[in-house]
Design a binder for these strands. Structure first.
Lengths: 131, 131
DNA sequence: GATAAATACGATAAAATTTATCGTATTTAT
DNA sequence: ATAAATACGATAAATTTTATCGTATTTATC
């Protein structure tokens, strides 16, 4: 019921890999895909999304690749997850209230759970996770 | 990526409903299903599972039903989720190590995330959530 | 300028998981 | 005996996740 998706997993693999390299050097999707035996196209999508969100930066063209751009200490796990997966809620009713259940009695309970999960993920940084 | 399943949701609905009733009185699956417009057979399965785990107790036969048995303050949310859904890990590799990724570099990071989620859910009780 | 190697990304297919239903058995008060 | 309730395995439907495909764009090198 709690699950890290492949998208996030591949992103973590890539970040951790890039952390071991010199700051300047570029890493290609192909290199990571080969080394960790991960589908290159899916990995590429995680990389692209991190690039759009300024966590890493992309260089196009031959000899191109990716490198870490942001200070990973400044990014909470909550932000990281939301950049990749969108709003983080254990139940849809946390955001939009298209609740089908008439006279629902668990909205408050579920929000309590959600708030605590979000609070916890806000205290962890990407750096502390991948270092 | 973090999600409370219907099974858990229905269980919470039922618990919260039963909390409002006298200690002695029994509640049928039908009653809850009707009141919250929830599929009775699925709700019944959540109830049965809670019964097997001694959170509630079942009385069979005509005039039967369920009532809360355990002290909800003594059950952490982690235990509750695990009783209903099994081991709680954000990634399978937390428990069994059928990891396909050769030279995986994110096992430690993922375990760090997992440990913190489990720790957090251990501090919340069912009572505090449903009260 | 052509080519090759890289990122970018929408569309769609395949696989896995979750959710729901069905059918039947069992229990027990009336 | 009957009716109302729990119990539960098997299977179908729906949804979500994961993967692939195809094409476009960018840019260093020859």
């Amino acid at each position: 019921m709690l699950k890290i998706t492949r998208k996030v997993e591949y992103a973590l693999i890539a970040l951790k890999h890039m952390q071991t390299k010199e700051d300047e050097s570029l890493t290609t999707a192909k290199e990571i895909a080969y080394q960790y035996n991960v589908p290159q196209q899916l990995l590429a999508k995680s990389l692209q999304q991190m690039s759009k969100n300024h966590i890493i930066e992309a260089t196009k063209g031959i000899n191109g690749g990716y490198r870490i751009k942001a200070n990973l200490n400044g990014i909470s796990l909550k932000d990281f997850f939301e950049k990749l997966e969108g709003p983080l809620g254990v139940m849809d009713c946390y955001f939009d209230s298209e609740c089908q259940i008439s006279g629902c009695n668990v909205k408050a309970p579920i929000e309590r759970i959600n708030d605590n999960i979000r609070k916890m993920l806000s205290t962890m940084t990407l750096e502390e996770v991948t270092q």
